[in-house]
Amino acid sequence: MNKTRRITTSRWWNNKNLWFLLIFLFLIVFVRFSKSLIYRDIYYFLSKPFWPGQFQRELLLESYDKELNTKLKQLEKDNLRLRSLLSLKKTTDDLKIDSSVISRNTGSWWRKIILNKGSRNGVTIGDAVVGPGGLIGLIDDVSIFTSSVKLLTSSESQVGAWVQRINIHGLIVGVGNDSPKMIFYSKDIDIKVGDLILSSPASTLLPPNIPIGIIESINQDSRPTTTANVQLLANPQAIDWVQILKTKI
């Protein structure tokens, strides 16, 4: 029996273009070396609803939240009790007065703003004023319909503050420009540019832990104190609305 020789030209790969072969090979190589990344990612999304730990994880997180909330409430209670023992200032959410800025003097000798809320709204001298970002100053004068705010940048302004990261207290002193100075009454402290400054919990003028600004630059050469330039978080030049925090002892 004679074996007939196959005609090689009839094979399919001989009929197709060479490009087809190349693309196919490339795909094969890609699938091999991609280490099934695409499959795994697809599988991730497909299997997500059926993961075994999901429900348990939510339960755990929920219980952890509850635990933290309980701790927070307890700490708040302790904090209020201790602050009242030390006769320090405190605020509550129901003692915030929204007010708009009706006059602004932020660049000259007098760094003040005037607000449209006065003594008839319950504003009193010494109340803290916060804008978007943080503290901007303290009420220094009140009329029936208006109140005047002495800005932190004013050369007459001095407030207690602390760097929470290292638990160091200092004094923020206005020097007339847009960056007040912070004076630390100790040398060799570990302050860094970018540290957040908050109102001091030990202050008798301000409610505790209101954000004030960040350390802009440090002057270690000043003797006997360390001073730092502070970049305020709230810019009084651009603020139209503020909140007056009613403080009580």
Binding site: W109, S155, G176, N177
Partner: peptide, 9 residues
């Protein structure tokens, strides 16, 4: 500290 601010004003 006040000199630069005063002179500017």
């Amino acid at each position: 500290w006040l000199f630069s601010f005063g002179l500017k004003n």
